[in-house]
Amino acid sequence: MKIKKFGEKIPQSLFFIIALSALSVLALITVFILIEGVPLISKVGVFKFLFGMKWAPSLGQYGIFPMIVGTVFVTTGAIILGVPIALCCSIFLAEFAPKKISNLVRPAIQLLAGIPSVVYGFWGLIFIVPFIRNYMGGPGLSILAGSIILAIMILPTIISISEVSILALPPLLKEGAFALGATHWQTIRGVLLPAAKSGILASIILGIGRAVGETMAVIMVLGNAVALPKSILDPARTLTTNIGIEMGYASGEHQQALFATGIVLLVIIMILNASAQYAIRRK
């Protein structure tokens, strides 16, 4: 009897230890990136690092403000272009699409989520970039190109989470509104969307997180110049692409500066994720 009990304990403790893996990876990531990055930030100074205008590793100048601005511009563009389409599509799937059509659209969205980011980047490079260069001016490799590609890439995230939060609403809400004589659109705008607000908000925040974190596709279409962009047709560089481009040849202090860029990125992502979780839980 005792042996049997002991045999029961082994798998339980073993699986407990394995279950700690995700938590340990998260801790290790934080520790490693802090160890590599903090010395440089403390050497340069937090303020000069975050708001410095000049990034010239060969001269020992590490200011990432242009990258922060680049990230904000590209992400904002992606949200402006992507969110309306994504919200319409999620309402379409949750409320209007006949079963036959939604059975086609859902796998399509899954595929959109599964296409590798380099394929988006490559398609952007040979389809979007020349289009912008020829019809709107500038080098083509630009904030606008980056925003368009990211807008497409965040569609699946926003659509699937918003759709789920609309579908999760109790049917009574809709029936009540209909019974009061509201049209379908009045019901959606006045009852369903406000009720699903927290889920929709979370989906948008997670979409922002995805856009901020994307690297390869953005490297391919953004032009990567380290300068404050003056218009959406100018090239720019984001925090992620700064790391991606220079990691291959950086060493010493320069490499530390890239880890320091990673710290800023990680902090932004953590804040975004925490707010998404908060938005979901507050309900």
């Binding site: 990136i33 160890i35 974190g213 790391i243 990691m247 880890f259 990125l265 990680l266």
Partner: peptide, 25 residues
Amino acid sequence: GVIRYGVEVLAGVPSIIFGLFGFAL
């Protein structure tokens, strides 16, 4: 709850950050 939260947070960390970590470790 903490373990689950860890899984959730890890899912949101960008690929390039994992790259930095993999490079360092």
